[in-house]
Amino acid sequence: MSKYSLKICHLYPDLLNLYGDRGNILALSYRAGLRDIDTEIVALSMGQSFEKDQYDIVFFGGGQDAEQKMIRRDLVTVKGEAVKEAVEEGMVFLCICGGYQMMGHYYQEQDGEKIDCLGALNVYTEARKQRFIGNTEYRCELPINDPIIYGFENHSGRTYLGDNVRPLAKVVYGKGNNGEDGTEGAVYKNVIASYSHGSLLPKNPELCDYILTLALKRRFGEDFTLKPADNQFEEIARKEFDSCKK
């Protein structure tokens, strides 16, 4: 047993299990392990309540439309208030694609129907016919050494940011939030949201470490620092991706 451990909550892993988003959990767990930090992964699905004092990092991924419809209700009615409180209190969240959209106020379908979402993030999403699909490169606005983040986007929703929400990154290649304003993802308190699959964190180890650090400081105090890790293979993957992304 290590002195340090983190509890990662994986929201609806049995329904939102697409596009390799579970790779983000594997990355958090692997890179914590490199620093002798234990991780415990808690799966939280339909009908189970969100215990907001229990977790250090919450992961919320994307799914297919049918599955996302199933969850929206559960998210709003069963977990809603607790998740919102946790966000306000600074719990660390990573939300990808569908998870990102569902944290916002609403999702408007192509036929105009508005589906209420959680409203924990001041963003909203409108569906469009054309899907944004392809490799992406972004310049991350968070304080990390190598700001370039790589991923793969696949979404028909266009997300627009409201007050108090900063973009996670500027688009270098790809479409990002809406294909119009050059922004990608969102940051609010300790919530980090993005459209990037890929998986996002394995190929962006600095972002992964940034998220781990946020959670560790919150749990073990501001003085906590993460030991550096050897990123040799991550660098190989990044270089390889950069050479064939377009």
Binding site: Y19, D21, G23, I133, F152, H197, P202
Partner: peptide
């Protein structure tokens, strides 16, 4: 398929 994310699934 241009997306290789699935290897993580």
């Amino acid at each position: 398929g241009t997306d290789v994310s699935w290897i993580w699934d």
